[in-house]
Amino acid sequence: MAPDELARTAYTVECFLNALRLDDGRERTAIEERLVKWLIATENKSGYLIFSDGNIFCHTGKEGSRAVNTIPVPTASRQHALWCSHKKLSEIDADSYAGNGKLVMLGTAALLLTLPGSAEAAAAKPTFEIGFSNNNNNNNNNNNNG
């Protein structure tokens, strides 16, 4: 694999583990290495990871395929599922998927893909669920940069 692609994969996995709110440490480093190696090794880059209920499931091939490996991450404090391929992270809006509630409350916290220890990670409230609408309106009333 090209060095660029290795860097892309390593970085994406790093963001994935950040989003699980997995503490830094030896254990995390070992998981990170294992996941990167595994994603790189899968044929046609078809591998993907799913975090759900305290476990990381490693899949190859089509979506919905059987997990070929499972890594428990009991200290991950994220509540909702997260998908990770070698080049992107994906999540679904749990509220929209949970039912047909009339009121869709769009969260205000951003997807926590920051590095551990960064100012943004520190500022994020761990109890907040991840939302889909970024707070970024710059309407004409309070326009700071047009």
Binding site: Y11, C15, S96, F132, S133
Partner: peptide
């Protein structure tokens, strides 16, 4: 539209 979709993706982009 970022306020209508129920799925979010975040891509890792490299300069090249």
């Amino acid at each position: 539209s970022q306020i209508l979709r129920a799925r979010s993706d975040c891509h890792t982009i490299l300069p090249g």
